[in-house]
Amino acid sequence: MRHLARPAAMVASFFDSLPPGQVATAMALHKAVLAAAPDIDQAVRWGSLMFLVRGSPLVTLLPHKGQAHLQFFQGALLVEQFPQLEGAGKGMRILKFRYSQSVDVDLVRRIIVAALQVPSVREQR
């Protein structure tokens, strides 16, 4: 019988697969998300690191060539409070971090805490 890979192993392999110039920023974002929500679940899906609340996605860490994105699934509900979130459409918004700049850990923490308070997410907790 085949066993599913453990989430911790999948997360470790996600970081191992990144180019060296992207690892520090991605790990800083990962650490900031976990500091804000220590009990959040993690999974690697579609080549990105996803943070989940009871199986539903809250935020995804997406590495790109020149920057890393935190993609908030209910971000449209947070734009008024956090104008740094970019994007259009019904729900998703993105927070961008250039690899050459430091991560604003406090901003990430505040957005994660606010995202966890969105009614549809709060009901799942």
Rank of each mutant, 00 (worst) to 15 (best):
A43N: 07
L52G: 08
P83E: 10
A36W: 02
G87L: 09
L85A: 00
F51E: 03
E123L: 15
S102T: 08
G91E: 02
A32H: 00
A35S: 05
G66Y: 04
P7Y: 03
S56A: 11
V53W: 02
V113I: 15
R122A: 14
A12S: 04
F14I: 07
R125F: 15
A114E: 03
A88S: 03
P57I: 03
R6N: 12
F15Q: 02
G87R: 06
L95C: 06
A68C: 04
R45D: 13
D16G: 11
L70D: 02
V33C: 01
Q22V: 05
L61E: 01
F73I: 10
A32R: 01
G55N: 12
M10K: 13
S48L: 01
G55S: 10
M50D: 11
G87C: 10
L61Y: 08
L116M: 15
T60Q: 01
L85I: 06
S100K: 00
L95E: 04
K65G: 07
R109E: 11
A68I: 03
K90P: 02
F73K: 05
E80F: 04
A88F: 00
L116E: 15
M10Y: 01
M10P: 08
R98I: 14
F51Y: 12
G75R: 04
Q117I: 08
M27C: 10
A9T: 13
R122D: 12
V108E: 12
P63K: 10
A5P: 03
L29H: 03
A88Y: 02
V33Y: 08
A32N: 05
P7I: 05
I111D: 04
L58P: 03
H64P: 03
A12P: 07
S13H: 15
L107I: 08
L61T: 03
F51D: 06
L34N: 08
L61Q: 00
A68T: 00
M50N: 13
Q74P: 01
V121T: 09
A32C: 08
V105N: 12
I94A: 00
V11E: 06
G91P: 00
R110W: 08
P57M: 07
R6V: 11
A68S: 09
M27L: 14
S120H: 07
Q81C: 13
P57F: 05
V11Y: 05
T60F: 05
L34R: 07
D41Y: 13
S13M: 14
L29V: 08
L62M: 09
G55L: 07
V23R: 03
V33N: 00
Q74I: 01
H3F: 11
F72K: 01
R2M: 14
S120R: 11
W46M: 10
I40Y: 12
L77V: 04
F14G: 04
S13P: 15
P7N: 15
A8C: 12
P7A: 13
L34Y: 00
L77W: 00
T25Y: 06
V53I: 06
A32L: 08
F14A: 00
D106H: 01
L95I: 05
S100N: 02
V105A: 15
K31Q: 07
G91Y: 14
W46A: 07
L107M: 07
K90G: 10
A37D: 11
H3L: 14
R2T: 13
F97A: 00
L29S: 09
H30F: 07
Q42F: 10
M27T: 11
G47K: 11
V105H: 14
A26W: 04
S48F: 03
E86F: 07
